[in-house]
Every structure is written in structure tokens, then in C-alpha cells.
Design a protein around this nucleic acid. Structure first.
Length: 804
DNA sequence: GGCTTCCCATTA
DNA sequence: AATGGGAAGCCG
């Protein structure tokens, strides 16, 4: 009886976005399971691709019309995607308009992605001179991009004449790290005898035998060599003489450099107690309830998470905790490890591919019960979840910006339904979407209104920069802020300065003609980078020297505008020469571990001022920081996006919470050109409730989320006309299926109309209920592939984070 | 006619 | 994504 496997192949196109049937070779018939990776032949040539077994049909009636190909090899002894994640991949593909294969690959560590190679071999009929010319002494040749075009041309011809053969290799990238373990292979008596037989000059051999006599347990080879100060030659001799045996042992690459001291559960206040109780109840009752945990900064949300997770573990279940990438600091990970020790696995972008793969395997094998990680950790292969935590649930980084455009919060909710376990969405400033659902009792609202230890909220001052400008010439620092910084320096306390960098950076402009240096590939100004002394494009990476003469009018009056962290640092240094400053931005934190190093330096009081971008706003807890300054509150406010106010309010509230966490009271200065804006005024008093009410009104009036759903469609092409044309025909098609209630914004050129020499046009559809929209969007996607593949790309983003 | 080049459907 | 087949284009 033939068995058939349905396979999702690693060819990310609309046309191949369906399972393909293959015969299962008899040798594999019993072991092949859904979720295993396989190598299958695909297409006319002998091309081999990786695929995922989607389904195994034990009793399929073979269709005489089609002759099925046979699976080549299996890459895994056990499935790498379990039943839950297979189902989740299907759901993801449907809801994000992504290919199933893309979804599967997103859920797995990169180490499991296939690497393809193409090889050519000479046939026996190939003439000797040609063979010599192409292959030299090699028996085969790797056919990749490094091959010269004329050789490629020659090989294509030879291939047609069957004078060379092409074959394909699908390589598994996943590499399991192994170390060599050494252990004695003889009894103590035998070793003693061997020791006596040695010549007196064989000092090293003697130390080795002495060690083996004294220690029966295995030891790693490098450790042994180091301890005994012997080289591997001596161990080779030892093995040859039968004193010892060596064995490879699988080890995990450990991403934790330091051990963490064990901590015990803290005492809870009444509000925390209530929250923990509610969550534990849901875990114990297997109730997939969603909690919105609203707690001001410093109200002890993390302790609530930890105790809810501890309860899940006590029930024999597992816990998953998501944290935004930017706040996934050693501080946070340390707190979780302090409570759960070796049961914790972490998944974030700071890990090497190998470390990530190993942490993933520990989770998959059930060796880790607690997972802490950023967005993609939501796919951690935990089999029996008891609770899922989404910390700082309002954070935009939970939404992936490319395919599959999923929101980790939505995936968390899906998994909660699958595992019948609660989800805790935690935030001081919840997203309007979540807060609105809590209002409608879709989510259960839990509130922590008090800071632990009766800490006072910091005193916040809004500084009107238009007023400041009138008094003295252009500076990044107002008089009140500068006075406050000097005061801290005198008292030996620390200051946090945040530069709001969203949509804002330093550029070069000619004072005579107003010329601004632009990227030749993208419609965006180039940013000045003092460290490399170049102008860089943040979108495509284009780089060129800083101009000294205006390319437009040849004036010499070309100079820097705007404010980058480097420029602020320079000004700060000239104003306060004695201050010790640490600057934290993309440039100073690019190297692995640099982020932690800078924070540790600041934490141990080796600096007075920490100057940085958004990344300093999250989750930092330094007791000596009593002053927080926001240099430019409004740059995020000015963006043409419906979430601009929400983002600004969240950011200001967040960063204000960094001041005065210990017994010393904190002070915050917010510098702005819009002192009366509600987002700034309400952040000043940390009044989330009022902000929510006000912003909801505006969203209601403007028909924005959460009152309306939204889908953003983007068409891009190297040819501007083609992109625009595609958009027009898409709109025409959509209008035939949409109800009159749907609202279309656009099509318009995107905020940055050109990136990497491609032109972007976008369309936003706002709607409440459109039964035909989904199928229409899928049709648009498949049509875009059929009609013109000449560069036209269509992207669909459901529930986009912004309309820009 | 014999060759290359480009387009395009097909992939189980 | 990558392949081979087929149509179209080019030369003597």
C-alpha cells in the first residue's frame, strides 16, 4: 500500500502556497510524521528543496492521472513543528496573508532553515581539455554567484549536451555543539601497574595516569588539558595505551554568562494579591481568560508575573513571558532567572544562531519550563502552557514589520485558547485597543494603582521651548533643565536625558539656498554620522562623505541642522565640562553586549548623565536617578499618523517613571514646543484615564481603530507608473466588493515615496464588517503574481501599527 | 537553418 | 525561486 505525504515546499510564492503530494518510500513509511522536514524533488530539473510534512495520508488511493514523485530524505528524527504549531502556522497564514512556508520558518530558529547548493560534475564523455579548463583537478564544482558569467554560459551549453551533470544539495545548517569527554578505561589496579611500567622521563604521562587514578568521573578534554598542563598528544597516547576513552557529548551553548542568586517571592500588597489570585485561578481552572494588568510604573507588575508563573509551574505547567526587545535587559532576565534558575530559557536577537538553536531545543525537549523572550519567542514550543505574559503590551515592536506581519499579542491570545490558559497583558499605558476591550468586559481588568513602598510619583514640569527660544539663542537645554542638571551634579545624583529620535535626526542644509542632502536611492534626507564622518541613509545604507561646499549653489555656508545624540553630547560637554556622560544610541550599542556594559557603568555610578534615545525609557531601574529630562517631546507628536498622540503619551509616561524610584523624590522636565497639547499635559499628571477618554473620542470622530478595523495595502515597483497603475486597478476591484460603509484612504504615495530605488503607493481600508474583503485581498495577491512579476510587489498589512 | 535571448507556465 | 520549453529575434 502506498503512503502519501502532503508537503509544504520551501518556495515562497502564491502559486506554490499549497501542500504537494509525494510518495513515501517504504523505508520511511512508519516514521514519517507531520512537522518533520524533508528533502523533495521539485520542478522539471533535478532541483531539490526543503519542505515540511503537512499531513500523512495512510490509505490514499493513488490518482492514475498524476504520477507522484517520492520523498528524497527526512531531515529530522522527530518533528520540529508540533501539532499545535502546525495549526498555528495555518491560522497565521490565513490572517496575515503570508505564505504557509514563511510562517513555518518564522516559528523556527534560523538554524533549521535550509541552505541550498548546486554542484556540477563532468560526464565521462567531456573532452579532457574542456574538463581541465573548467574543473582543473577538482572532481566537481560548486555552482554559485561567484562563478564567472562566461563559465556559467559554457556550463549551460554543456549541460544541454549532457556533458556535465548538475545535482543539488540541501544542507542542514543546524549544528549541535559537542565536546570531548575523557574518562578512565582501566581499573585502578591496572592503572597503577601502567604507572609503574613508565620510564622515569615520561613525566607528563605519569601526571595523566595519576589524575586518572584519583578521578574516575568523566571530565572535558580542554579542562583536563588545562588542569594538568598537558597537550592532546599525551591524551592520544593515553587512549592508544587503553588508559582512557574519549567520547563526544552534546552540550548546549549557554547564553548566560553569569550565575544569578536565587530570590524568594516578595510580599504582595492587596492589589497585587488580588491580581495574582485572579490569574492563578484561571490557570488552575484551565480558563483561557485575558487579563489587562494596568499598573503605574513602579507598581510591582513584574512580581505579579513571577508569582503567576510560579503557580503555573507548581501545577506542572509552563510559562511564557514576552518582553519588548528593547527592554529585554539583563535586569529583567536576571529577575526571572533569580526566581526560576535553570528552568529558564531566553530567546532574543542578542543570541548567536547557535545559542538560539540550543535554547530552542531545551524548550522543545521540555528541559526549560519558563521562556522569556522578545516577539518571536511567542512561538516557543512549550507543550503545556499554564500562563502567558505580554509585558508592555502597548509596545509597537510586538508587530512584525515584514511577512508574516503578525502581532505577538494576537498569537499569544490564540495560544491561550489552544492551551486553555490565561494571558496577562501588562502595561502602565495600555494600547487603546486593549483598554477598550477591557471596557467591554472582553478582557478582565486588573489594576495596580499604587507604587510599592508608597513612592511618590515624580514632579513633572513642562518647559515651553518657544518661550526659551526668545530668551537665549538656540540650545538643546532650557534654563530650568540646565539648573536642575547642575543641581544633581552637585548632590552626586544621576540624570537621565532622552532625545526623542522618531522621525528626527541631524541633516545637512545649505544656509544660502536651503539645499538638503538627499539619498540618491530613497526620498529621504541623509543623516550625519560624526563617528564615521559620513552621511548615511537609514533606509538603504547608502553612504557618502560630508559635503563642505553646497552641491547646488557652491556656497560654503553648508552646515548641520537638527539634533542627534552626538551633537547634544557635544553641547552638554561644553556646558558642563566636569560631568561624566554616557551616550546610548544605535551607534554606541551596535556591538554585542555594549548595551549592557553601558548600563552597568551607569548603574555603578561611573557617570552622572545617561543620554540616549527611546531605548533608555524602558525598564531601567537606577535608584540614584532623581532627574529625567526629555529634550524634544514633540518630534513624535508631529508625525502624520493616528497613533502619534498615543505614542507620545506612552513614551513620556514611561520615561517619567524612571525618576525617583527609591526614597529620593524624582523630578521630570519635558521640553516642548506644544506645551498645551493634551498628550503632553496628561503625561505630566500621568493621567491615563483622562488620556484614554480624550483619545477615544478623537478616534471615534475620525473613524480610526479601535472603532474601525484597518488594512494597509502597499504596491511598489521600480517603475513609478506601474506601482500607481496597480494601485488604481486594486481600488477599482475593491470597490466592487466593499460595502458603502468601508472607508478608503488613498491611494497615495507612501510617506517615504521611494526606498531603495522602488516607488511605494499605499491604500488604507477602514471598515467594521466586510465579509468579502478577505477573499478579495487574497485574489489581489495571487493576481499580482500572475500578471506582472516585473518588479511589482504587493504587501498587505492587517491592523497596521501606523498608516504612514 | 541554427543559434541566442527573452518570456512564462509549471512545479506533486 | 528556478527550471525547461517555446516563441521571438538575429545572422549568414
Amino acid at each position: 500500500m502506498t503512503q502519501i505525504a502532503e508537503v509544504i515546499v520551501d518556495v515562497p510564492t502564491m502559486q506554490t502556497n499549497t501542500p504537494y503530494s509525494y510518495k513515501i518510500p517504504a523505508a520511511l513509511s512508519d516514521q514519517l510524521q507531520p512537522g518533520m522536514r524533508v528533502v523533495v524533488p521539485f520542478g522539471n530539473g533535478g532541483r531539490k528543496v526543503q519542505g515540511f510534512v503537512w499531513q500523512v495520508k495512510p490509505d490514499a488511493k493513488p490518482d492514475p492521472e498524476v504520477t507522484l514523485k517520492t520523498i528524497d530524505t527526512v531531515m529530522d528524527p522527530t518533528p520540529v513543528v508540533n501539532a499545535e504549531l502546525m495549526q498555528l502556522a495555518g491560522w497565521l497564514a490565513r490572517t496575515t496573508y503570508a505564505f504557509t512556508i514563511t510562517c513555518l520558518q518564522t516559528m523556527l530558529p534560523n538554524a533549521l532553515k535550509a541552505k541550498y547548493q548546486k554542484w556540477v560534475k563532468p560526464s565521462p564523455e567531456l573532452s579532457q581539455p574542456v574538463r581541465q579548463q573548467i574543473f582543473g583537478e577538482q572532481s566537481e564544482l560548486l555552482w554559485d554567484d561567484s562563478l564567472k558569467p562566461e563559465i556559467v554560459k559554457q556550463l549551460l551549453t554543456l549541460n544541454r549536451q549532457h556533458l556535465v551533470q548538475v545535482h543539488y544539495a540541501v544542507n542542514n545548517q543546524s549544528h549541535v555543539k559537542k565536546i570531548t569527554m575523557v574518562k578512565p578505561a582501566m581499573s585502578t589496579n591496572e592503572l597503577v601497574r601502567a604507572r609503574k611500567a613508565l620510564r622515569s622521563t615520561a613525566v607528563k604521562q605519569a601526571t595523566l595516569i595519576d589524575y586518572l587514578i584519583a578521578h574516575r568521573e568523566p571530565i572535558s578534554q580542554p579542562e583536563l588539558e588545562h588542569n594538568l598542563k598537558v597537550t592532546s598528544t599525551i591524551l592520544n597516547t593515553g587512549e592508544a595505551n587503553g588508559w582512557l576513552t574519549r567520547q563526544a557529548k552534546e552540550v548546549y551553548r549557554d547564553p548566560f554568562q553569569t550565575a544569578v542568586a536565587q530570590t524568594a517571592a516578595l510580599h504582595l500588597n492587596a492589589d497585587q494579591e488580588k491580581a495574582v489570585h485572579a490569574i492563578c485561578e484561571a490557570t488552575d481552572q484551565q480558563h483561557p481568560e485575558t487579563f489587562l494588568l494596568e499598573g503605574v510604573t513602579g507598581s510591582g507588575k513584574t512580581e505579579v508575573y513571577l508569582q503567576a508563573m510560579a503557580n503555573a509551574l507548581k501545577q506542572g505547567k509552563q510559562a511564557l513571558m514576552l518582553v519588548p526587545e528593547i527592554s529585554l535587559t539583563p535586569q529583567i532576565v536576571g529577575r526571572v532567572r533569580g526566581r526560576f534558575g535553570k528552568r529558564v530559557a531566553v530567546l532574543h536577537s542578542g543570541l548567536s544562531a547557535g545559542e538560539r538553536f540550543d535554547e530552542w531545543r531545551r524548550i522543545q525537549r521540555g528541559e526549560a519550563q519558563v521562556v522569556v523572550g522578545a516577539r518571536s519567542a511567542v512561538f516557543a514550543p512549550l507543550k503545556n502552557l499554564g500562563v502567558i505574559i505580554v509585558d508592555e503590551e502597548h509596545e509597537g515592536s510586538y508587530k512584525q514589520e515584514d511577512n508574516p506581519r503578525y502581532h505577538a499579542r494576537d498569537v499569544a491570545l490564540w495560544r491561550s485558547r489552544y492551551h486553555h490558559c490565561p494571558v496577562v497583558l501588562g502595561s502602565a499605558t495600555p494600547s487603546l485597543e486593549s483598554r477598550a476591550r477591557a471596557q467591554k468586559n472582553v478582557y478582565t481588568r486588573l489594576v495596580l494603582p499604587h507604587r510599592v513602598n508608597q513612592q511618590q510619583l515624580p514632579q513633572v514640569t513642562v518647559v515651553d521651548m518657544t518661550e526659551e527660544l526668545r530668551h537665549h539663542k538656540e540650545s538643546n537645554f532650557s534654563t530650568p533643565l540646565m539648573t536642575a542638571i547642575q543641581d544633581r551634579l552637585q548632590r552626586g545624583e544621576q540624570t537621565l536625558l532622552m532625545l526623542n529620535r522618531r522621525g528626527y535626526s541631524s541633516f545637512v542644509m545649505c544656509r544660502d539656498c536651503g539645499f538638503v542632502l538627499q539619498c540618491p536611492n530613497c526620498d529621504i534626507s541623509l543623516t550625519l554620522h560624526m563617528d564615521t564622518k559620513t552621511m548615511k541613509c537609514h533606509y538603504c545604507g547608502h553612504e557618502e562623505p560630508i559635503p563642505h561646499i553646497c552641491p547646488n549653489c557652491h556656497s560654503r555656508h553648508i552646515r548641520y541642522y537638527g539634533t542627534g545624540t552626538q551633537k547634544v553630547e557635544q553641547e552638554l560637554k561644553s556646558l558642563l565640562p566636569a560631568a561624566r556622560i554616557i551616550r546610548m544610541d544605535v551607534d554606541t550599542t551596535r556591538r554585542k553586549g555594549a548595551h549592557e556594559r553601558l548600563l552597568r557603568r551607569f548603574g555603578s555610578h561611573q557617570a552622572d548623565i545617561l543620554l540616549g534615545t527611546q531605548m533608555i525609557a524602558k525598564g531601567l531601574d537606577f535608584p540614584d536617578v532623581t532627574l529625567v529630562g526629555v529634550l524634544n517631546a514633540d518630534t513624535s507628536l508631529g508625525l502624520p499618523d493616528f497613533r502619534a498622540s498615543e505614542r507620545t503619551f506612552q513614551l513620556l509616561t514611561q520615561v517619567s517613571g524612571r525618576a525617583g524610584r527609591a526614597e529620593k523624590p524624582g523630578q521630570v522636565f519635558i521640553q516642548t514646543y506644544n506645551p498645551d497639547h493634551y498628550a503632553i499635559q496628561l503625561a505630566k499628571t500621568q493621567n491615563y484615564e483622562q488620556f484614554f477618554g480624550r483619545e477615544m473620542q478623537l478616534r471615534h470622530r475620525g473613524n480610526y481603530p479601535p472603532y474601525y478595523f484597518a488594512v494597509k495595502l502597499t504596491a511598489s515597483d521600480v517603475d513609478e507608473h506601474k506601482a500607481a497603475e496597480a494601485m488604481v486597478s486594486i481600488v477599482r476591484k475593491l470597490k466592487t466588493v466593499l460595502t458603502p460603509k468601508a472607508i478608503l484612504l488613498g491611494p497615495t504615495p507612501s510617506a517615504i515615496a521611494r526606498v531603495n530605488k522602488r516607488y511605494y503607493y499605499q491604500l488604507v481600508i477602514k471598515y467594521k464588517k466586510e465579509p468579502q474583503l478577505d477573499s478579495a485581498l487574497f485574489e489581489i495577491l495571487s493576481q499580482a503574481q500572475k500578471v506582472s512579476r516585473g518588479g511589482l510587489q504587493i504587501a498587505i498589512d492587517r491592523n497596521p501599527m501606523s498608516f504612514m
